[in-house]
């Protein structure tokens, strides 16, 4: 197609028209006023601070009520003191590092496996009727039920933990992708076809981005399952010289160190919340990009 524009007699007139149309177009677009980063951060933070405050004060209230003696149920002040002491030790950080490594490797593997299976199932009618409900069945199976088998197969090893993390997370990721693909408007697929997107190009440019909202929801759920499976695994499969968050939890219980135990629980909760926040932000960013967040009202 020729790119040059042949000169035309009425170009001055056109220029005026262009300017007028540009003016009209500018009127049509609502001007977006971006609030400052500071006020947005604060807007997201204060409700969380209030929630944390409420939880801590009810915890303290239960302790003060004398329902259980303080050596069994210490108050938040003592627990956070224990946590800060622990944070000064190398073991604590090594444990977190090892746990996060396991989580990252397991989750990454689950993403690969879940995505491949999800895509295959969404494409093939036979696979869908055969494997579709199996995936949902696996998803609802408590991951702890896999451990006896995992320990039989892999003994008390990293592989046993990895196996259960992957099998806990992959079905959710596969299901999220399948749901996401099922909800792509057929018009987008037809538009892609007209543009010549076939095979892997169609997957990469239309199917995957089109399914992204469902996929991210699946990843988020998959992460929750991975994290749960990992904690269960670390309680059961304790490997010598490999400190982990779960192992420390178990160790504190064995020592009847209630404050240490609660401190580790706070750590587990904090990591879970932090990762969930990342997924929440990703989800919000995706929806905002696609105009699924009402910014004008």
């Amino acid at each position: 197609m020729a790119v040059e524009t042949p000169p035309r007699a009425a170009s001055v007139e056109d220029d005026v028209l262009d300017t007028e149309i540009a003016g009209l177009d500018a009127l049509e677009i609502p001007r977006s006023e971006k609030s400052s980063l500071r006020s947005r951060l604060w807007g997201g933070t204060w409700p969380k601070l209030i929630a944390i405050g409420l939880v801590l004060s009810s915890w303290q209230a239960v302790v003060w009520s004398g329902w259980r003696p303080p050596y069994l149920l210490p108050g938040p002040v003592e627990v956070f003191e224990t946590l800060f002491d622990a944070a000064a030790t190398a073991t604590f950080w090594q444990a977190i590092l090892i746990t996060m490594q396991r989580a990252a490797v397991g989750f990454a593997l689950a993403i690969v496996i879940g995505t491949v299976i999800g895509f295959a199932v969404s494409r093939s009618k036979v696979l869908r009727s055969g494997v579709g409900s199996l995936i949902t069945g696996l998803q609802s199976m408590p991951s702890i039920a896999w451990f006896p088998l995992a320990i039989l197969l892999f003994r008390l090893s990293e592989t046993a933990i990895l196996f259960v993390v992957v099998i806990g997370a992959a079905p959710s990721i596969a299901n999220g992708l399948i749901t996401g693909i099922d909800h792509i408007p057929p018009l987008w697929m037809r538009a892609g076809k007209v543009l010549g997107a076939r095979g892997f190009a169609a997957f990469r440019h239309i199917v995957l981005p089109g399914a992204m909202p469902g996929y991210v929801a699946g990843l988020k759920q998959g992460w929750a399952f991975a994290w749960r499976s990992l904690m269960a695994g670390e309680l059961l499969v304790i490997i010598a010289n490999r400190p982990s968050v779960g192992a420390l939890l178990q160790f504190n219980r064995d020592q009847s160190d209630a404050a240490g135990l609660l401190a580790m629980m706070v750590v587990i909760l904090a990591i879970g919340i932090a990762v969930d926040t990342v997924f929440g932000a990703a989800d919000r960013a995706i929806r905002a990009r696609r105009g699924l967040v009402d910014t004008a009202a």
């Binding site: 987008w188 037809r190 997107a197 981005p209 696609r290």
Partner: peptide, 25 residues
Amino acid sequence: ALMFQEPALFPWLTAAANVELALTL
């Protein structure tokens, strides 16, 4: 090439990227 009755643009791409996709494909 078919221009649909609805614009049928991909909402995750900018206006320019929507046009570019037709070319890169």
